[in-house]
Structures are given as C-alpha cells and as structure tokens.
C-alpha cells in the first residue's frame, strides 16, 4: 500500500491509537526516503533549519533519546536536551510549569518521555508546539512501534497478514500497546505470549490472540518480538525467578529452530541476555535488532519532518 494521504491531521504524535492506517503508511513511506540520508557522506539535510526541538526526558532513556537527537541533527534542527535530574524538576517544579517555561523560549517541537501516562497529551493540549511522545509510562511509545513496523515492512514487504508474536512483559510494556494498535490497524495478526501474571485481563478485546507458551507463539510466526522484563515497573516479581522465566519463555536457538524459516527476531531494547533472549539468538542471523536501531533514526526523522510542515486545514 502506498500513501493515500499527504499530511498528518494532528500537530502532535501522542500515540498510535489516534492514527489512521493512511497516516501510518505515510510515515513509513516518508521514512524510506529518509533512510538514504543516513548513508550519505554528509548526513544532514536543511529541512528543519532554524527550528528548535526540546528533548524533555523525565525518565531514563538512552536509545530513544540518542535516536531522536540524531534525527533532529540530521534535519538541521537546533536541539536542546532537558533531563529530570539536575534540573528544576528536582526542586519541585510541576510539569506544566516546566513546559510553560520552556515554551517561553519558543520551541517548535517538544519530544517528551515521562513516567506518567498522558503527560504528553497534557502538554499537547496546552502548548502550541508539536508534542512527540517518546514513551509515557505504560501507555504508548509510538515511534518504537513505527520503527518496528518499518523494519517488518522492509524485510517482508508488507504488514497485512503478517503473523507477529510478542513475548514477555506484556503488562508493563508501552511498546506492546503501541505495537498492538499499529499492527491491528495494518491488518497484521498479533499473538501475545507470557505467564498469565504478565498479561492484562481482557487484552483480547484489542483484537489479539493470547497464548501461554513460547512454542505456541513461535508456531507459524513470521516475526517474534521479545520484550524485556521490566523489573523497575513491577512491585514484586510476577514469576518465581528469572532463571525459571528463561527456562519457560526465554528465546533460545533450540526453540527458535522450531519456528518457520526466515522468521525475524526483534527486540526493542535494552536486552537482558539470558533472561528473555539467549545471546546466540540476539546475535544470530534471524535477529534484526540492530536494524531496528538504524531504522529508528529514519522513522523519527519522518515524524519530525511531517509534524514540522504546514498543516492541512481541518
């Protein structure tokens, strides 16, 4: 499918849920054009020259922050990084006040990561700048889902009808929530697999299939996406031990051998080797984990570019 729309409707990217399949296709098509920029000798184009992008990361992040920053720099935007530690946030400033103060410096876009779901929306409703959600609590992480979809589409040529199995900490993952929205909108078949304690009740209502063993998830899968166990978001461990988790849900070479030939192994990172994925699989020929990282820059460039442009009258 090629893009049938040429603009995004909103000034913000708050999640995948509000997007139409046409908008998703537009972002992915645009990212294809941007991928080539990162392979040039001069990896920079002047598209966002003179625009100020503030990266407001109120929660730890390496990959996403660095990826956004590279994307912004490759588009010639001016970037400013603002982290929670060592800032006015530690002195008790509210998010709204922080944002209002940043806004007084006239940024064109704000990329925000926050531990509270809905924080990006709160800013989007109050500020004229374009807000990009770089992960809000366990709500959404739209650019991760877009780069995952880009990687699948690039490798398999389509999203429609592709069997994607997502394995691991479903309950605490914003990545999986965005991915479910995106993949179901694009007519892919999504299977979730995890211990029952890590699967939210009634998640089937999002149009996905739930299984409770890794072998079932691997059966017929074109893509298997492994998720990290988010110990930091769990009050107490939802399973007896990490060793036991690895033995039942860890993706080993032996288990992967039972999957369809040509299956893609994905991981949004950071990986815990020996917990959800074995090292030889993470580094093996089926793994596209580092391609995901490369594609992340192209996808984020596409999002920044599309949001920076003129908007169609509503």
């Amino acid at each position: 499918m090629r893009a049938q729309t040429s603009a995004l409707r909103s000034k913000d990217l708050l999640g995948i849920e509000p997007l139409t399949p046409e908008e998703i296709t537009l972002i992915l098509d645009t990212a294809e054009g941007f991928k080539e920029v990162s392979e040039r000798p001069v990896k920079k184009v002047p598209a966002l020259r003179g625009q100020l992008v503030i990266n407001l990361f109120m929660e730890a992040s390496t990959r996403t922050r660095v990826s956004f920053e590279i994307a912004e720099k490759r588009l010639s935007a001016d970037t400013l990084n603002f982290a929670a530690s060592g800032s006015s946030v530690e002195k008790g400033e509210t998010l709204i006040d922080t944002a209002a103060n940043l806004m007084a410096m006239h940024p064109d876009m704000i990329v925000i990561r926050h531990k509270y779901p809905g924080a990006p929306r709160m800013l989007a409703d109050r500020l004229p700048a374009s807000i990009i959600n770089a992960g809000d609590g366990s709500h959404e992480h739209p650019t991760q889902a877009l780069l995952d979809a880009f990687t699948i589409r690039e490798r398999l040529g389509r999203l429609s009808g592709v069997n994607v199995s997502i394995v691991g900490d479903i309950a605490h993952s914003r990545v999986v929530r965005s991915n479910i929205h995106l993949l179901t909108k694009m007519k892919a078949n999504v299977t979730l697999a995890a211990p029952p304690t890590l699967i939210p009740a009634q998640v089937e209502e999002m149009g996905v299939r739930v299984v409770h063993s890794l072998d079932e998830a691997l059966e017929g899968a074109d893509v298997v996406m492994m998720l990290r166990i988010q110990l930091e978001r769990q009050g107490k461990l939802s399973f007896p031990s990490l060793r036991e988790y690895y033995n039942t849900f860890g993706l080993t070479g032996e288990r992967l051998a039972r999957a369809r030939e040509g299956v893609l192994v994905m991981h949004p990172g950071p990986m815990n080797r020996g917990v959800e994925i074995a090292s030889d699989v993470a580094d093996g020929p089926a793994s596209v984990i580092l391609e995901q990282v490369t594609n992340g820059v192209a996808v984020r460039m596409a999002v920044l570019y599309l949001l920076a442009g003129g908007h169609l009258a509503e």
Binding site: A7, L26, E32, G33, E36, L75
Partner: peptide
C-alpha cells in the same frame, strides 16, 4: 524536497524519496 526554501510554509509536506 528537503532542500526547498518553502518547506515550513507549504501544506501538505511533499513526500520525501531517496536520492540515488
């Protein structure tokens, strides 16, 4: 596309394609 001088004023954004 990315070198146009009217990028931030035109709507919608033109589709970016690779240079080869």
């Amino acid at each position: 596309t990315l070198y146009r001088d009217d990028l931030t004023t035109i709507a919608p954004q033109p589709l970016v394609k690779p240079t080869k």
